[in-house]
């Protein structure tokens, strides 16, 4: 058990190192940050000075060593655009992204499970077919188009919901939240739907498939034979059994939700890490880009590590095999 955890942890560090090399080398070469910083008519000498002050004329190996050494202490340098430490910028933006990601996940779980259960129990009803159709359309349209369509419908045409931003936020310690104000809650609706729609589809299909499978198993048949009510069978036994994989998937997907928030945040001008990343890409703000990539990988790696360990705790059979099912 300890050996397993240790191995996983070492592997996680390896992942982070690999990501660090990739992100550094990619961002080292994407566009010239100096051009973003100076204006069109800055002289060549000044440009050189700027280049020097950024350490861009050092050997690449040195630049990387410096970069990684700092990153390990959460020092990501100062953003070229905002002249603030990247770590504080990320910390400032993280609540927005996490809140959006959590709301999107909750939205996806609640509706995904409800729709999945319904379409498993009433396989041939019209509503189940509609759910299936909606879920298929949900994965067949690009996220940005869905976002724009939602804005077009609910903000511009109907005027019900805001089209951008977080609304009013309340500061609780270092965390900012939009959950405590009406405008903040309203602002969360459209982005959460846009971001969560895909997860919803995923969960709905998963619940449906698992339910169908479980309902076929012997012990459900046995329960039926024992004369338990349909409701008790469906919700007490079948659903309970499907929830473990559903929660696992939702947990594993959480990292991806954060990563895919890039697109949703761009469409809704949501002031989170994803928007920061996109703006950084446009402005070749290397420190932000590199830090974002490392942060997101760190989140992924942590989630994976936790899930792995939980698995071995929950399911003793896995302790010997180590690898969880793909």
């Amino acid at each position: 058990m300890l050996a397993f955890t240790l191995r996983r942890a070492i592997q996680a560090i390896g992942v982070m190192l690999a990501v660090g090399i990739i992100s550094f080398s990619m961002f080292r070469f994407a566009g010239d940050p100096v051009n973003q910083i100076v204006s069109l008519d800055t002289s060549a000498a000044e440009r050189e000075a700027v280049r020097k002050s950024l350490g861009l004329d050092d050997p690449v190996v040195m630049q990387f060593a410096r970069y990684f050494g700092n990153a390990a202490q959460f020092k990501f340098g100062v953003s070229y655009q905002f002249r603030q430490p990247v770590s504080s910028l990320l910390a400032e933006r993280m609540p927005a992204t996490l809140e959006l990601a959590i709301c999107a996940t909750i939205f996806a779980m609640v509706f995904g499970i409800l729709m999945g259960v319904y379409s498993a129990l009433k396989r041939d009803s019209a509503l189940a077919k509609i759910f299936q159709a909606v879920s298929l359309i949900g994965i067949s349209l690009p996220t940005f188009l869905i976002g724009i369509l939602l804005i077009y419908l609910f903000s511009v045409t109907l005027g019900w919901l805001p089209s951008f931003g977080r609304g009013d936020v309340v500061r609780v310690g270092w965390w900012t939240t939009g959950l405590l104000t009406l405008s903040g809650l309203k602002a969360l609706i459209l982005p959460s739907i846009t971001l969560g729609l895909f997860q919803l589809t995923l969960i709905m299909r998963l619940v449906r498939a698992e339910m169908l499978e479980v309902l076929r198993t012997d012990y459900i048949r046995f329960a039926r034979a024992r004369g338990l009510t349909t409701r008790a069978i469906h919700f007490g036994h079948a659903l309970k059994n499907t929830l473990v994989p559903v929660i696992t998937v939702a947990g594993l997907q959480f990292g991806s939700v954060i990563a895919f928030a890039i697109i949703t945040e761009t469409v809704f001008q949501w002031p989170g890490m994803g928007l920061l990343f996109v703006q950084a890409v446009q402005n070749v703000d290397i420190p932000i880009m590199a830090a974002y990539l490392l942060m997101v990988s760190l989140i992924f790696v942590t989630i994976n590590l936790v899930v792995d360990i939980l698995y071995t705790v929950v399911d003793p059979r896995l302790r010997s095999t180590i690898r969880r099912p793909a």
Binding site: I151, F164, V267, Q269
Partner: peptide, 9 residues
């Protein structure tokens, strides 16, 4: 930054 969002706003 997004044109469509700005117009919508």
């Amino acid at each position: 930054g997004s044109d469509a969002t700005r117009v919508a706003a």
